[in-house]
Design a protein around this nucleic acid. Structure first.
Lengths: 223, 223
DNA sequence: ACGTTAACTTAACAACGATAACATACGAGT
DNA sequence: ACTCGTATGTTATCGTTGTTAAGTTAACGT
C-alpha cells in the first residue's frame, strides 16, 4: 500500500476517502440501521456507528444534527415505504372489503419486518419537547414535518371505509372512527409483538390473520 | 417527628437519617415514578432520583441492582393493581360474555386513568435482557420473577375465554389465542390514546365501547 | 503557487451509570 | 457502659456516552 500521494490517483487512503459520490451519508444510515437491528436502538452508540462506517464519531455530526436525527431519517424513509405499500393496494381493483384486509395485513407485516423503525415512528414518537410545542395548531398537512406522513397514511384507511360506505355498507360509526378502531387493533398487535418479542405468543401467522379479521368483522360484522 | 432516640441528638444530620420505618425504598420508587412522568424514562437519571430523595446517587444501589430494576419494580406494582381489578370482576356472578366486556372496559379505563404507569409497564418497559433469558424455561408461574405478573394478569383473560368455551361457545382459536387478540386490540387503543393524546381522535367513550365490542364480537361473532 | 472550502481528525467536555473504599450510627452481646 | 458488627450512608473515581471545539489534510478553482 504505497503512499504515492499523486499521479496514480488510486492510493491507499490514510484517511477514509472523501465521500465518493453521495455514499457517505447513506453509509452512515446503513450502518446505523444494521446496528439498530443487531443490538437494539438503545444499545447502539454514535461511536459504534462511526466505527462500523470506518470514521471517527464526530464525523457523523457533519451529516446529522444529533443521534435522534439519524433515527428520524431512518424511520421517515421506512414510513414512505409503508405508504407506498398501502398505495399499491389502493390501486388494486378490489372490493373495498378486500382492500381493507389487504391493507391491514400489509400494515402488520410491515411493522413486524421493521420493528425498530416502527417503534420510533409509532410508539417512541415523542420527540421530547419539540413537536410537543411546535405544533400547537394542527397543521397535519405539511409533508416536511415529521409525523405528517402518519396522518396521510391514516387517511388511506379512512378512504377505504368511505369507499365501503359508498358501496352501500352501513357503518356503525363514522368512517374515521372505524378507521381508528381498525388501526388501533392492528397497532396493538404490532406493538405487543415488538415490545415483548420473547413472550410466548401464539403463532404469528394465526395472530395476523386473526387480527385482520377482528379489525374488519369486529367493526362491520357482515363483511 | 422526633427521632431523639438518644440524648440531645446534638449535631445536625450531615447525612440523611436512616430509613424511618421502611420508607427509604418506597421513597426511591415514588421519586423515580414522579420523575419518569415528568421527564420521561430516558431523561431520568439515577442522580436526579437520588437528588429528589435527598440522598447520594450510590445509595440507590443499596436498594436496587441498577436503574432498570427500579423501573421493573414499578411495573410489577402496577401489574398487581390491575390484576386486583380484574379479579374483582372475575368474582362477579356474570355470564362469561359479560365478564369479558367488563374486563376489557376495566382494562382500558385503568390504562387511561393511569397513563403514566401504563406507559412504564406496558410500553416503555424495556425488556432489559433479563426476561429475555429467564423465559426459556417456561415456568411462568413463579410470582417472584419480574415480568411474571404480566403473564398472570394475562391468564385471567384466558380464563374467561375458557369459561366461555365451557359454556358451549365455539371459539375460532384456542382460548389463549383469543385472549391475545382481545388484549392486543384493547392495548392498541390505550397505547394510541396515551402516546398521541393531542391527535384529534374520535370521542373517547365511543372508542372505548367500540373497541370492547370489536374485541369481543370480532372474535366470537355470536356474542 | 495560492487561498478557499469540504471532509475528517484528535482533544476535550459535561453528564451518565456504576463500583470501590471509607465513614457513621444503631442495636445486640457482653 | 463498652465494644463490635451490620445496615446505611458518603466521597472519590472509573469507563462510556453524546456532543462541541479546534486543528489538519486533501481537492479544486484561479
Amino acid at each position: 500500500m504505497g503512499f504515492s500521494t499523486r499521479a496514480a490517483a488510486t492510493k491507499a487512503p490514510v484517511r477514509k476517502p472523501r465521500g465518493e459520490g453521495h455514499t457517505r451519508r447513506d453509509e452512515i444510515l446503513a450502518a446505523a440501521q444494521a446496528l439498530f437491528l443487531e443490538q437494539g436502538v438503545r444499545a447502539t452508540t454514535i461511536r459504534r456507528i462511526a466505527e462500523r462506517v470506518g470514521v471517527s464519531a464526530p464525523a457523523l455530526y457533519l451529516y446529522f444534527k444529533d443521534k435522534d436525527a439519524i433515527l428520524l431519517e431512518l424511520c421517515d424513509r421506512t414510513f414512505e415505504r409503508l405508504m407506498r405499500r398501502l398505495e399499491d393496494i389502493e390501486r388494486l381493483p378490489l372490493p373495498a372489503a378486500q382492500r381493507l384486509r389487504r391493507m391491514g395485513e400489509a400494515y402488520v407485516r410491515f411493522g413486524l419486518e421493521h420493528p425498530d423503525e416502527y417503534w420510533i415512528t409509532f410508539i417512541e414518537a415523542a420527540p421530547p419537547e419539540e413537536v410537543r410545542f411546535t405544533g400547537h395548531r394542527s397543521d397535519m398537512s405539511d409533508p416536511e414535518q415529521p409525523g405528517a406522513k402518519g396522518a396521510l397514511t391514516f387517511a388511506k384507511i379512512v378512504g377505504v371505509y368511505q369507499a365501503l360506505a359508498s358501496e352501500g355498507v352501513t357503518l356503525p360509526y363514522p368512517a374515521d372512527t372505524c378507521a381508528e378502531l381498525s388501526w388501533m387493533a392492528c397497532h396493538g398487535l404490532v406493538a405487543a409483538l415488538i415490545t415483548k418479542p420473547d413472550f410466548p405468543w401464539s403463532d404469528r401467522e394465526t395472530l395476523i390473520r386473526g387480527m385482520v379479521e377482528v379489525s374488519v368483522r369486529g367493526i362491520v360484522p357482515t363483511l
